[in-house]
Amino acid sequence: MQKFVRKAGLVAPMDRANVDTDLIIPKQFLKSIKRSGFGPNLFDELRYLDEGFPGQDCSQRPKNPDFVLNQPRYQGASVLLARANFGCGSSREHAPWALEDFGFRVVIAPSFADIFFNNAFKNGLLLITLSDEKVDQLFAELYAQEGYRLDIDLANQVINTPSGESIAFEVDAFRKYCLENGLDDIGITLEQADAIRTFEARHRASQPWLFRG
């Protein structure tokens, strides 16, 4: 997982509620046995006018000119501003893989679905939950100003807007630590291998039917 580096990122809007993971990356792309290369198919059904399939050269496909990520002003965006319940539905980690492969590092929304939330942080994607009012405000500022950027300062847990406003956000200490250091949490968990073994022995003694052999 790559480290989270502070920088002022161009912001793109995804102005609809309940964006599900089928919409973020349609199922036909889940047949890949790799973790990379999903970026060209991010939001595939919204982004292109034809039906996508794995292995296609996406640069040759007809693009939907109305879709935000195809508009010139949002090229190079690394911050996605979204609506409530972003990432609902399927547990596919291909959704954060696609967002990350496309170039997004941050998603800001009033709420996120639970499984997507966990998956995102495991891939260096920072999810920031703000109130509905703050998100409305950011959408208004974004639409009003081409080249709208937000400075995401993870260390101090604030978003700095172009007008100079600082908006504080919450992030779990453990998730922040992993993001800042680009850490794989399996290694961290295995530091507790003895505690896991002790628990396991006690568990086996009390519910032996959970263990076969």
């Binding site: 547990s91 499984i115 966990n118 998956n119």
Partner: peptide, 15 residues
Amino acid sequence: GIGTSEVEHVLATQC
């Protein structure tokens, strides 16, 4: 329900 990183985490750590 978990994601693929968590599948790997559970395989490796049982947690």
